[in-house]
Amino acid sequence: MASDTTAQAAKPRPVNAMSARDYAIRYGFLALLAGLVIYFGLAADGFASPQSAVFIFQSVAITGILALGVTATLVVGGFDLSIGSVATTAMMASSYVMVVMGGDALMAVAACLAVGVVVGLINGFLIVYMRVPDLLATLGMMFLLVGLQRIPTEGRSIATGMTMPDGSVASGTFSPEFLALGRHRFDLFLPNLLPISVVVLVVLAIVIWFFLEYTRFGRMMYAVGSNERAAQLAGAPVNAYKIWAYVISGVFASIGGILLAARLGRGDIASGNNLLLDSVAAALIGFAVLGAAKPNALGTAVGAVFVGVLLQGLTMMNAPYYTQDFIKGAVLVVALVFTFALSKRGKR
């Protein structure tokens, strides 16, 4: 059923008359992923192990969550460049709540989610009511947040026992429950295998996939993204759907920020630099999965895993770390060619 809904778009001809080209468009990227897994499994020692698989998922969990959020904004025909800075702002907010204000894990999580909702609402307001183009509004928000997260601590990172600007020493600590979000592992076949971040990624992927594909709200969001005026004349509250998309994106990004803070155990102003580009890349690679040629949750998740597999495999085959961005970029370009040059949809 999943392939039925995501792939129908790119096959104008009967199923039994699919040409090699149609097959290439639909399954090419999945075949490439399978090929990579098999190749690395044979070539790199230890790649084909549960630990390695979990490591791959863990390495892409946070960018994957952010990518799922940005997918929602892509669906309504928008874009959200502020996700990376929302995540780091949430990280700083949770650290501040616990270390400086002495709050507990629940308060920290609530503060992060509040950051996501508020930023999403502001983005949506700017884009819908102030008519600022989406890229510019969210770019502005990105700058604003990068600056904002440094103000309370005057540019310092937040860690337990840090010295405050007024000379006193912060009394709070990261609560153990909060840190567990980043460090606890569930047992799955092997003891202590599955980290919470991977579970969150899988759950959120399923939730957003179901929401976009199987609920009327998701369908309306696709309609808004495809022809806004037609959607409006079909009775859709277009503005509300757009704002909701940015709220979803903000909340997902703040969840990513929570996991980041819990993993690091400090509010590090220097972390999270690559979050935006990596997650946008995953969402765009997702266009190529199953020939969807449009933003889709399944594709985004596959796109994130694809990047993870490639980097993990190359690392295990001793490719130097500084080639990683180049490889990610190359994958993105190939995926975009798949989407726009090969599929009929892109030619319109």
Partner: peptide
Amino acid sequence: ADSGIVPDFN
């Protein structure tokens, strides 16, 4: 084309 059809939908 402008006000009716959603081109991405079947």
